[in-house]
Protein backbone atom coordinates (compact mmCIF):
# COMPACT_ATOMS: atom_id res chain seq x y z
CA UNK A 1 0.00 0.00 0.00
CA UNK A 2 1.30 3.44 -0.90
CA UNK A 3 0.63 6.40 1.31
CA UNK A 4 0.72 9.84 -0.20
CA UNK A 5 -0.16 13.30 0.97
CA UNK A 6 0.60 15.10 4.18
CA UNK A 7 -1.25 12.85 6.64
CA UNK A 8 -3.09 14.12 9.71
CA UNK A 9 -5.40 17.11 9.34
CA UNK A 10 -9.16 17.16 9.31
CA UNK A 11 -11.07 14.06 8.24
CA UNK A 12 -12.17 14.30 4.60
CA UNK A 13 -15.57 15.74 3.98
CA UNK A 14 -18.46 13.31 3.57
CA UNK A 15 -18.93 14.48 0.00
CA UNK A 16 -15.34 13.74 -0.91
CA UNK A 17 -16.00 10.06 -1.50
CA UNK A 18 -18.69 10.87 -4.04
CA UNK A 19 -16.51 13.51 -5.71
CA UNK A 20 -13.59 11.11 -6.14
CA UNK A 21 -15.84 8.30 -7.35
CA UNK A 22 -17.38 10.53 -10.00
CA UNK A 23 -14.00 11.92 -11.02
CA UNK A 24 -12.62 8.42 -11.66
CA UNK A 25 -15.66 7.41 -13.68
CA UNK A 26 -16.42 10.55 -15.62
CA UNK A 27 -12.88 11.53 -16.62
CA UNK A 28 -12.63 9.50 -19.78
CA UNK A 29 -8.87 8.99 -19.56
CA UNK A 30 -9.66 6.93 -16.45
CA UNK A 31 -13.27 5.70 -16.89
CA UNK A 32 -13.00 3.39 -13.88
CA UNK A 33 -16.19 2.35 -12.11
CA UNK A 34 -14.63 -0.44 -10.09
CA UNK A 35 -12.63 1.61 -7.59
CA UNK A 36 -13.98 1.83 -4.06
CA UNK A 37 -13.33 5.05 -2.21
CA UNK A 38 -13.57 4.68 1.54
CA UNK A 39 -12.93 7.18 4.24
CA UNK A 40 -10.64 6.43 7.16
CA UNK A 41 -10.01 8.70 10.14
CA UNK A 42 -7.53 10.96 8.38
CA UNK A 43 -7.33 9.68 4.82
CA UNK A 44 -9.20 8.09 1.96
CA UNK A 45 -8.36 4.60 0.67
CA UNK A 46 -8.67 3.77 -3.02
CA UNK A 47 -9.30 0.07 -3.41
CA UNK A 48 -9.95 -2.21 -6.36
CA UNK A 49 -8.34 -3.82 -9.38
CA UNK A 50 -7.44 -2.38 -12.78
CA UNK A 51 -6.18 -3.70 -16.11
CA UNK A 52 -2.73 -2.06 -16.15
CA UNK A 53 -0.11 -0.51 -13.86
CA UNK A 54 -0.39 2.65 -15.95
CA UNK A 55 -4.06 2.99 -14.95
CA UNK A 56 -3.20 2.66 -11.29
CA UNK A 57 -0.69 5.50 -11.67
CA UNK A 58 -3.20 7.62 -13.61
CA UNK A 59 -5.80 7.18 -10.87
CA UNK A 60 -3.39 8.26 -8.16
CA UNK A 61 -2.13 11.21 -10.22
CA UNK A 62 -5.64 12.43 -10.96
CA UNK A 63 -6.82 12.19 -7.35
CA UNK A 64 -3.72 13.97 -6.03
CA UNK A 65 -4.08 16.65 -8.69
CA UNK A 66 -7.72 17.38 -7.78
CA UNK A 67 -7.49 16.90 -4.02
CA UNK A 68 -3.92 17.90 -3.08
CA UNK A 69 -4.80 18.36 0.59
CA UNK A 70 -6.21 14.87 1.06
CA UNK A 71 -3.97 12.04 2.28
CA UNK A 72 -4.61 9.15 -0.08
CA UNK A 73 -3.78 5.50 0.41
CA UNK A 74 -3.79 3.31 -2.69
CA UNK A 75 -4.53 -0.39 -2.55
CA UNK A 76 -5.22 -1.12 -6.20
CA UNK A 77 -4.11 -4.38 -7.75
CA UNK A 78 -3.72 -5.65 -11.31
CA UNK A 79 -6.24 -8.21 -12.50
CA UNK A 80 -4.48 -11.44 -13.35
CA UNK A 81 -4.61 -12.66 -16.97
CA UNK A 82 -3.32 -16.20 -16.79
CA UNK A 83 -5.05 -19.01 -18.69
CA UNK A 84 -7.50 -21.00 -16.55
CA UNK A 85 -6.22 -24.21 -15.01
CA UNK A 86 -9.68 -25.65 -14.35
CA UNK A 87 -12.97 -25.83 -16.22
CA UNK A 88 -16.49 -25.90 -14.82
CA UNK A 89 -18.52 -28.93 -15.85
CA UNK A 90 -22.19 -28.02 -16.24
CA UNK A 91 -24.27 -31.19 -16.40
Amino acid sequence: MTQRGAGGGEPPDDYLEAAIQRLLTERTEIAEQGITVSRRDHSVVLCGEVESAQRREEILRLVLEHFPEVPVMVDIGLIRTQAPTEVEELR
Binding site: G34, Q82, V87, E88, E89
Partner: peptide, 19 residues
Protein backbone atom coordinates in the same frame (compact mmCIF):
# COMPACT_ATOMS: atom_id res chain seq x y z
CA UNK B 1 -25.97 -17.88 -14.44
CA UNK B 2 -22.28 -17.03 -14.37
CA UNK B 3 -20.75 -13.60 -13.85
CA UNK B 4 -17.62 -13.63 -16.03
CA UNK B 5 -16.48 -10.05 -15.36
CA UNK B 6 -12.70 -10.12 -15.46
CA UNK B 7 -12.25 -8.78 -11.90
CA UNK B 8 -14.56 -11.56 -10.69
CA UNK B 9 -12.99 -14.55 -12.47
CA UNK B 10 -9.42 -13.22 -11.96
CA UNK B 11 -8.06 -15.05 -15.00
CA UNK B 12 -7.98 -14.37 -18.75
CA UNK B 13 -11.24 -16.28 -19.30
CA UNK B 14 -13.29 -19.05 -17.74
CA UNK B 15 -14.16 -22.28 -19.53
CA UNK B 16 -17.50 -24.05 -19.15
CA UNK B 17 -18.25 -27.53 -20.43
CA UNK B 18 -21.84 -28.00 -21.52
CA UNK B 19 -23.08 -31.52 -21.98
Amino acid sequence: VRNVAHPVIKQAYSVFHLH
